[in-house]
Computed example of a mutant assay.
Amino acid sequence: MHRFFRTALVLAPAAIVLSACASFTQDAPITGLRLIGEQRIALKQAFQGTTVGGLSGIDYDAASNSWVMESDDRSEINPARFYRATLAYDSEKFSGVTLDSVHFFTQPDGSRYPNLAHAKLDQGDQVADIETLRVDPRDGSLWYGSEGNRKVGLHPFVRHADRDGKFLATLPTPAMFKVSKDEVGSRNNMSFEGLSFAADGKSLWLGMEAALYQDGPLATPDHGSVVRITRLDRSGKVLGQYAYPIEAVASRPAPGREADNGVSEILAVNDHQLLVVERAGVENAAGVYANHVRIYLMETDGATDIQAIPALAGASYVPARKRLLLDLEKLGLARVDNIEGMAWGPRLANGSRSLVLVSDDNFNAQQVTQILAFEVLAHPR
Protein backbone atom coordinates (compact mmCIF):
# COMPACT_ATOMS: atom_id res chain seq x y z
CA MET A 1 0.00 0.00 0.00
CA HIS A 2 1.39 3.40 -0.88
CA ARG A 3 1.98 5.49 2.26
CA PHE A 4 1.04 8.44 2.25
CA PHE A 5 -17.97 2.45 -11.16
CA ARG A 6 -19.18 2.23 -13.28
CA THR A 7 -21.03 -1.12 -12.99
CA ALA A 8 -23.02 -3.39 -15.26
CA LEU A 9 -22.03 -2.06 -18.65
CA VAL A 10 -22.96 -4.16 -21.66
CA LEU A 11 -20.44 -6.96 -21.92
CA ALA A 12 -18.73 -7.96 -25.13
CA PRO A 13 -16.87 -11.25 -25.62
CA ALA A 14 -13.54 -10.48 -24.02
CA ALA A 15 -11.26 -13.09 -25.50
CA ILE A 16 -10.64 -16.69 -26.37
CA VAL A 17 -9.19 -18.75 -23.54
CA LEU A 18 -6.67 -21.22 -24.92
CA SER A 19 -5.28 -22.64 -21.69
CA ALA A 20 -6.47 -23.66 -18.26
CA CYS A 21 -4.64 -20.73 -16.73
CA ALA A 22 -3.52 -17.68 -18.66
CA SER A 23 -0.29 -17.45 -16.65
CA PHE A 24 1.24 -20.74 -17.64
CA THR A 25 1.75 -20.79 -21.38
CA GLN A 26 5.06 -20.61 -23.18
CA ASP A 27 5.22 -17.72 -25.62
CA ALA A 28 7.68 -15.86 -27.78
CA PRO A 29 9.87 -13.28 -26.01
CA ILE A 30 7.95 -10.20 -24.87
CA THR A 31 8.90 -7.00 -26.69
CA GLY A 32 6.34 -4.56 -25.30
CA LEU A 33 2.81 -3.78 -24.17
CA ARG A 34 0.09 -2.05 -26.21
CA LEU A 35 -2.63 -0.24 -24.29
CA ILE A 36 -6.13 -1.42 -25.23
CA GLY A 37 -8.04 0.88 -22.91
CA GLU A 38 -8.87 2.14 -19.44
CA GLN A 39 -11.86 1.84 -17.15
CA ARG A 40 -12.38 3.38 -13.72
CA ILE A 41 -14.38 2.51 -10.64
CA ALA A 42 -15.93 5.50 -8.89
CA LEU A 43 -14.54 6.69 -5.58
CA LYS A 44 -16.01 4.73 -2.65
CA GLN A 45 -18.48 2.92 -4.90
CA ALA A 46 -21.05 1.10 -2.76
CA PHE A 47 -21.44 -2.60 -3.57
CA GLN A 48 -23.34 -5.26 -1.61
CA GLY A 49 -22.90 -3.44 1.70
CA THR A 50 -19.23 -2.62 1.19
CA THR A 51 -17.18 0.32 -0.03
CA VAL A 52 -15.04 -0.46 -3.07
CA GLY A 53 -11.49 0.86 -3.08
CA GLY A 54 -7.91 0.09 -2.17
CA LEU A 55 -7.66 -2.48 -4.97
CA SER A 56 -4.07 -3.63 -4.69
CA GLY A 57 -4.20 -7.14 -6.15
CA ILE A 58 -5.87 -8.73 -9.15
CA ASP A 59 -5.89 -12.12 -10.88
CA TYR A 60 -7.86 -13.92 -13.57
CA ASP A 61 -9.83 -17.09 -12.74
CA ALA A 62 -9.91 -18.88 -16.09
CA ALA A 63 -12.23 -21.65 -14.89
CA SER A 64 -15.04 -19.16 -14.20
CA ASN A 65 -13.93 -16.47 -16.67
CA SER A 66 -13.96 -13.96 -13.82
CA TRP A 67 -11.51 -11.61 -12.16
CA VAL A 68 -10.60 -11.51 -8.48
CA MET A 69 -9.63 -8.13 -6.99
CA GLU A 70 -8.67 -7.68 -3.35
CA SER A 71 -8.88 -4.56 -1.21
CA ASP A 72 -6.07 -3.60 1.15
CA ASP A 73 -8.58 -2.09 3.56
CA ARG A 74 -7.25 -3.18 6.96
CA SER A 75 -10.82 -3.94 8.02
CA GLU A 76 -11.22 -0.27 8.89
CA ILE A 77 -14.10 0.39 6.46
CA ASN A 78 -15.27 -3.20 5.93
CA PRO A 79 -13.61 -6.51 6.85
CA ALA A 80 -10.72 -7.70 4.65
CA ARG A 81 -12.28 -8.78 1.37
CA PHE A 82 -12.08 -9.42 -2.34
CA TYR A 83 -14.42 -8.87 -5.25
CA ARG A 84 -15.23 -11.03 -8.24
CA ALA A 85 -15.75 -9.03 -11.40
CA THR A 86 -16.17 -9.24 -15.15
CA LEU A 87 -13.90 -7.18 -17.39
CA ALA A 88 -15.11 -6.67 -20.96
CA TYR A 89 -12.27 -6.10 -23.39
CA ASP A 90 -10.98 -7.36 -26.70
CA SER A 91 -8.03 -6.31 -28.85
CA GLU A 92 -9.78 -3.09 -29.91
CA LYS A 93 -11.45 -1.72 -26.80
CA PHE A 94 -12.00 -2.03 -23.06
CA SER A 95 -15.72 -1.43 -22.71
CA GLY A 96 -16.71 -2.14 -19.13
CA VAL A 97 -16.27 -3.43 -15.60
CA THR A 98 -19.00 -5.27 -13.71
CA LEU A 99 -18.68 -6.16 -10.04
CA ASP A 100 -20.36 -9.52 -9.47
CA SER A 101 -19.85 -10.45 -5.80
CA VAL A 102 -17.91 -9.69 -2.63
CA HIS A 103 -16.27 -12.23 -0.32
CA PHE A 104 -14.52 -11.90 3.04
CA PHE A 105 -11.24 -13.49 4.06
CA THR A 106 -11.26 -15.43 7.32
CA GLN A 107 -8.74 -16.25 10.02
CA PRO A 108 -7.93 -19.83 11.07
CA ASP A 109 -10.76 -19.79 13.63
CA GLY A 110 -13.29 -18.86 10.94
CA SER A 111 -13.73 -15.24 12.03
CA ARG A 112 -13.25 -12.30 9.71
CA TYR A 113 -10.12 -10.23 10.10
CA PRO A 114 -10.58 -7.41 12.67
CA ASN A 115 -9.21 -3.90 12.49
CA LEU A 116 -6.45 -2.87 14.84
CA ALA A 117 -8.84 -1.27 17.35
CA HIS A 118 -10.73 -4.55 17.83
CA ALA A 119 -7.94 -7.10 17.32
CA LYS A 120 -7.03 -9.40 20.20
CA LEU A 121 -3.37 -9.57 19.38
CA ASP A 122 -2.55 -11.54 22.53
CA GLN A 123 -4.96 -14.24 21.33
CA GLY A 124 -3.47 -14.59 17.88
CA ASP A 125 -5.59 -12.17 15.87
CA GLN A 126 -4.00 -10.76 12.73
CA VAL A 127 -4.79 -7.41 11.17
CA ALA A 128 -4.62 -8.14 7.47
CA ASP A 129 -3.03 -5.62 5.13
CA ILE A 130 -3.56 -7.66 1.98
CA GLU A 131 -1.49 -6.36 -0.93
CA THR A 132 -1.46 -9.21 -3.43
CA LEU A 133 -3.39 -12.36 -4.34
CA ARG A 134 -3.31 -15.18 -6.88
CA VAL A 135 -5.70 -17.83 -8.14
CA ASP A 136 -4.28 -21.33 -7.72
CA PRO A 137 -4.00 -22.97 -11.16
CA ARG A 138 -4.74 -26.38 -9.66
CA ASP A 139 -8.13 -25.77 -8.11
CA GLY A 140 -9.07 -22.09 -8.22
CA SER A 141 -8.34 -21.49 -4.53
CA LEU A 142 -6.65 -18.23 -3.48
CA TRP A 143 -3.24 -17.31 -2.09
CA TYR A 144 -2.67 -13.86 -0.65
CA GLY A 145 0.03 -11.82 1.03
CA SER A 146 -0.23 -9.35 3.91
CA GLU A 147 2.35 -6.75 4.91
CA GLY A 148 1.76 -7.13 8.64
CA ASN A 149 2.34 -4.19 10.97
CA ARG A 150 5.80 -3.60 12.37
CA LYS A 151 4.54 -0.96 14.81
CA VAL A 152 2.55 -3.56 16.76
CA GLY A 153 4.77 -6.58 16.05
CA LEU A 154 2.63 -8.28 13.39
CA HIS A 155 4.74 -10.21 10.88
CA PRO A 156 3.96 -10.27 7.16
CA PHE A 157 2.36 -13.50 6.00
CA VAL A 158 1.17 -15.51 3.00
CA ARG A 159 -2.03 -17.51 3.40
CA HIS A 160 -4.04 -19.98 1.36
CA ALA A 161 -7.84 -19.72 1.21
CA ASP A 162 -10.64 -21.45 -0.66
CA ARG A 163 -12.50 -19.75 -3.50
CA ASP A 164 -14.71 -17.91 -1.02
CA GLY A 165 -11.87 -16.66 1.19
CA LYS A 166 -12.07 -19.30 3.96
CA PHE A 167 -8.69 -19.95 5.60
CA LEU A 168 -6.91 -23.15 4.57
CA ALA A 169 -3.26 -22.75 5.60
CA THR A 170 -0.38 -20.34 6.23
CA LEU A 171 2.68 -20.66 4.02
CA PRO A 172 5.96 -20.68 5.99
CA THR A 173 8.18 -17.81 4.82
CA PRO A 174 11.85 -17.04 5.60
CA ALA A 175 12.57 -15.71 9.09
CA MET A 176 14.56 -12.82 7.60
CA PHE A 177 11.25 -11.20 6.60
CA LYS A 178 9.87 -10.99 10.13
CA VAL A 179 9.54 -7.62 11.82
CA SER A 180 11.71 -6.67 14.78
CA LYS A 181 12.04 -3.99 17.40
CA ASP A 182 15.56 -3.46 16.08
CA GLU A 183 16.51 -2.21 12.63
CA VAL A 184 16.56 -5.64 11.04
CA GLY A 185 13.99 -7.47 8.92
CA SER A 186 11.02 -5.93 7.13
CA ARG A 187 10.28 -2.22 7.23
CA ASN A 188 6.79 -1.11 8.18
CA ASN A 189 4.33 -1.15 5.25
CA MET A 190 7.10 -2.27 2.87
CA SER A 191 7.13 -6.05 2.90
CA PHE A 192 5.05 -8.66 1.00
CA GLU A 193 3.74 -6.68 -1.95
CA GLY A 194 4.06 -9.11 -4.87
CA LEU A 195 3.03 -12.73 -5.39
CA SER A 196 2.93 -14.96 -8.45
CA PHE A 197 2.68 -18.62 -9.25
CA ALA A 198 5.68 -19.87 -11.18
CA ALA A 199 5.13 -20.84 -14.80
CA ASP A 200 4.73 -24.52 -13.91
CA GLY A 201 2.20 -23.78 -11.14
CA LYS A 202 4.19 -25.84 -8.65
CA SER A 203 5.83 -22.99 -6.76
CA LEU A 204 5.33 -19.32 -5.95
CA TRP A 205 7.36 -16.15 -6.28
CA LEU A 206 7.19 -13.68 -3.39
CA GLY A 207 8.27 -10.07 -3.87
CA MET A 208 9.26 -7.52 -1.24
CA GLU A 209 8.25 -3.90 -1.76
CA ALA A 210 11.45 -2.45 -0.34
CA ALA A 211 14.83 -3.40 1.09
CA LEU A 212 15.18 -5.16 4.40
CA TYR A 213 16.98 -2.97 6.92
CA GLN A 214 20.11 -5.09 6.65
CA ASP A 215 20.08 -4.95 2.86
CA GLY A 216 20.64 -1.20 2.60
CA PRO A 217 18.79 2.11 2.38
CA LEU A 218 15.56 2.85 0.54
CA ALA A 219 15.50 4.37 -2.94
CA THR A 220 15.75 8.17 -3.17
CA PRO A 221 15.96 10.61 -6.09
CA ASP A 222 19.74 10.21 -5.83
CA HIS A 223 20.17 6.44 -5.66
CA GLY A 224 18.33 3.18 -6.18
CA SER A 225 17.87 0.25 -3.82
CA VAL A 226 17.48 -3.52 -3.86
CA VAL A 227 14.75 -5.96 -2.88
CA ARG A 228 14.62 -9.72 -2.46
CA ILE A 229 12.40 -11.78 -4.73
CA THR A 230 12.05 -15.35 -3.49
CA ARG A 231 10.81 -18.59 -5.02
CA LEU A 232 9.18 -21.06 -2.61
CA ASP A 233 7.53 -24.41 -3.09
CA ARG A 234 4.05 -25.03 -1.76
CA SER A 235 5.42 -26.17 1.60
CA GLY A 236 7.47 -22.99 2.04
CA LYS A 237 10.89 -24.39 1.12
CA VAL A 238 13.04 -21.70 -0.51
CA LEU A 239 13.99 -22.76 -4.03
CA GLY A 240 15.89 -19.59 -4.85
CA GLN A 241 16.18 -15.94 -3.95
CA TYR A 242 17.44 -13.06 -6.06
CA ALA A 243 18.34 -9.40 -5.60
CA TYR A 244 16.27 -7.13 -7.81
CA PRO A 245 17.72 -3.62 -8.33
CA ILE A 246 15.24 -0.75 -7.96
CA GLU A 247 15.66 2.52 -9.82
CA ALA A 248 16.15 5.86 -8.12
CA VAL A 249 12.96 7.89 -7.64
CA ALA A 250 12.18 9.60 -10.96
CA SER A 251 11.55 13.10 -9.56
CA ARG A 252 12.06 15.13 -6.41
CA PRO A 253 9.46 15.89 -3.75
CA ALA A 254 8.70 19.36 -2.47
CA PRO A 255 10.88 20.47 0.46
CA GLY A 256 10.02 18.50 3.56
CA ARG A 257 7.82 16.04 1.62
CA GLU A 258 8.24 12.33 0.85
CA ALA A 259 9.27 10.29 -2.17
CA ASP A 260 9.85 6.58 -2.57
CA ASN A 261 10.11 3.80 -5.14
CA GLY A 262 9.41 0.12 -4.65
CA VAL A 263 8.10 -3.09 -6.16
CA SER A 264 4.30 -3.15 -6.13
CA GLU A 265 3.69 -6.44 -7.99
CA ILE A 266 5.42 -9.33 -9.77
CA LEU A 267 4.20 -11.81 -12.37
CA ALA A 268 5.98 -14.90 -13.69
CA VAL A 269 6.54 -15.04 -17.46
CA ASN A 270 8.40 -18.34 -17.63
CA ASP A 271 10.80 -20.32 -15.46
CA HIS A 272 13.45 -17.60 -15.33
CA GLN A 273 11.71 -14.29 -16.09
CA LEU A 274 9.18 -12.13 -14.23
CA LEU A 275 7.41 -8.88 -14.91
CA VAL A 276 8.03 -6.39 -12.12
CA VAL A 277 6.08 -3.19 -11.44
CA GLU A 278 8.15 -0.39 -9.95
CA ARG A 279 5.85 2.24 -8.51
CA ALA A 280 7.19 5.54 -7.19
CA GLY A 281 5.22 8.17 -5.29
CA VAL A 282 6.43 11.76 -5.08
CA GLU A 283 4.69 14.27 -2.82
CA ASN A 284 4.22 17.90 -3.81
CA ALA A 285 3.90 20.92 -1.50
CA ALA A 286 0.15 20.35 -1.13
CA GLY A 287 0.66 16.76 0.01
CA VAL A 288 -0.59 15.25 -3.27
CA TYR A 289 1.36 12.35 -4.77
CA ALA A 290 2.40 11.98 -8.38
CA ASN A 291 3.10 8.41 -9.47
CA HIS A 292 5.88 7.14 -11.70
CA VAL A 293 5.09 3.57 -12.80
CA ARG A 294 7.29 1.35 -14.92
CA ILE A 295 7.13 -2.32 -15.87
CA TYR A 296 10.39 -4.24 -16.19
CA LEU A 297 11.26 -7.73 -17.39
CA MET A 298 13.44 -9.38 -14.72
CA GLU A 299 15.89 -12.15 -15.66
CA THR A 300 17.09 -14.54 -12.94
CA ASP A 301 19.49 -16.59 -15.10
CA GLY A 302 23.02 -15.63 -14.13
CA ALA A 303 22.00 -13.94 -10.88
CA THR A 304 23.32 -15.03 -7.48
CA ASP A 305 21.04 -17.11 -5.27
CA ILE A 306 21.19 -14.88 -2.17
CA GLN A 307 19.07 -16.93 0.25
CA ALA A 308 22.12 -17.66 2.43
CA ILE A 309 23.34 -14.03 2.47
CA PRO A 310 21.88 -12.51 5.67
CA ALA A 311 22.65 -8.90 4.70
CA LEU A 312 23.15 -7.55 1.19
CA ALA A 313 24.71 -4.26 2.31
CA GLY A 314 28.42 -4.69 1.63
CA ALA A 315 28.01 -8.24 0.31
CA SER A 316 29.28 -9.53 -3.03
CA TYR A 317 26.60 -10.88 -5.36
CA VAL A 318 25.27 -10.58 -8.91
CA PRO A 319 21.80 -8.99 -9.01
CA ALA A 320 19.12 -10.00 -11.47
CA ARG A 321 19.18 -8.26 -14.82
CA LYS A 322 16.19 -6.25 -15.97
CA ARG A 323 14.88 -4.52 -19.08
CA LEU A 324 12.31 -1.72 -19.28
CA LEU A 325 9.14 -2.82 -21.07
CA LEU A 326 6.86 0.14 -20.42
CA ASP A 327 6.88 3.57 -18.82
CA LEU A 328 3.20 4.27 -18.11
CA GLU A 329 3.79 8.01 -18.23
CA LYS A 330 4.34 7.65 -21.99
CA LEU A 331 0.90 6.15 -22.68
CA GLY A 332 -0.88 9.49 -22.98
CA LEU A 333 -3.29 8.75 -20.12
CA ALA A 334 -4.93 11.65 -18.29
CA ARG A 335 -3.17 10.36 -15.18
CA VAL A 336 -1.19 7.40 -13.93
CA ASP A 337 -2.29 6.39 -10.48
CA ASN A 338 -0.96 4.09 -7.78
CA ILE A 339 -0.63 0.83 -9.77
CA GLU A 340 -0.39 -2.12 -7.39
CA GLY A 341 -1.99 -5.11 -9.17
CA MET A 342 -0.98 -6.97 -12.34
CA ALA A 343 -2.28 -10.18 -13.91
CA TRP A 344 -2.36 -12.17 -17.11
CA GLY A 345 -5.78 -12.16 -18.69
CA PRO A 346 -7.39 -14.44 -21.28
CA ARG A 347 -5.88 -14.58 -24.72
CA LEU A 348 -7.15 -12.19 -27.34
CA ALA A 349 -8.74 -13.40 -30.57
CA ASN A 350 -5.43 -12.88 -32.39
CA GLY A 351 -3.68 -15.28 -30.01
CA SER A 352 -1.78 -12.63 -28.04
CA ARG A 353 -1.70 -12.64 -24.27
CA SER A 354 -3.51 -9.86 -22.46
CA LEU A 355 -2.33 -8.13 -19.29
CA VAL A 356 -4.34 -6.09 -16.77
CA LEU A 357 -3.21 -3.54 -14.19
CA VAL A 358 -5.22 -2.02 -11.33
CA SER A 359 -4.51 0.96 -9.08
CA ASP A 360 -5.05 1.34 -5.35
CA ASP A 361 -6.83 4.66 -4.69
CA ASN A 362 -6.35 4.42 -0.90
CA PHE A 363 -10.02 5.53 -0.63
CA ASN A 364 -8.63 8.99 -1.33
CA ALA A 365 -10.50 11.64 -3.32
CA GLN A 366 -7.19 12.82 -4.80
CA GLN A 367 -6.70 9.43 -6.47
CA VAL A 368 -8.61 7.11 -8.79
CA THR A 369 -9.16 3.39 -9.24
CA GLN A 370 -8.04 2.72 -12.79
CA ILE A 371 -8.00 -0.61 -14.59
CA LEU A 372 -5.80 -0.83 -17.68
CA ALA A 373 -5.91 -3.61 -20.29
CA PHE A 374 -2.97 -4.35 -22.61
CA GLU A 375 -2.05 -6.60 -25.49
CA VAL A 376 1.30 -8.30 -24.91
CA LEU A 377 3.57 -7.87 -27.92
CA ALA A 378 6.11 -10.57 -28.73
CA HIS A 379 8.72 -11.55 -31.28
CA PRO A 380 7.62 -14.44 -33.51
CA ARG A 381 9.75 -17.53 -32.98
Rank of each mutant, 00 (worst) to 15 (best):
Y244F: 12
S264I: 02
R163Y: 05
R112L: 10
A15D: 12
R3V: 09
F177C: 04
T230L: 02
R150L: 06
K322P: 01
R381C: 06
G57H: 11
S19A: 15
N189R: 11
R335V: 00
E147L: 07
E131D: 07
G341I: 07
A303Q: 08
G165C: 04
V376I: 04
Q126L: 11
W67C: 04
R234T: 07
L377I: 14
R34G: 09
M298I: 14
D361Y: 09
T86E: 13
A303D: 12
A259S: 15
S66C: 04
S264C: 03
F105N: 05
G302Q: 03
D72M: 11
L18Y: 00
T300I: 15
A243M: 04
I246F: 04
A303M: 07
S19H: 11
V102T: 09
G287S: 01
A63G: 09
A80L: 03
D129T: 05
S64V: 08
C21I: 02
L328S: 03
E209T: 12
E283Q: 10
T304V: 05
Y242F: 15
R228Y: 04
G207A: 14
A12S: 05
I246P: 00
A161P: 01
K93H: 10
Y144V: 11
V10N: 08
F5K: 05
G207F: 13
L355P: 03
S111A: 10
V288N: 06
T50N: 02
A88L: 01
A259Y: 00
V356M: 06
E258A: 07
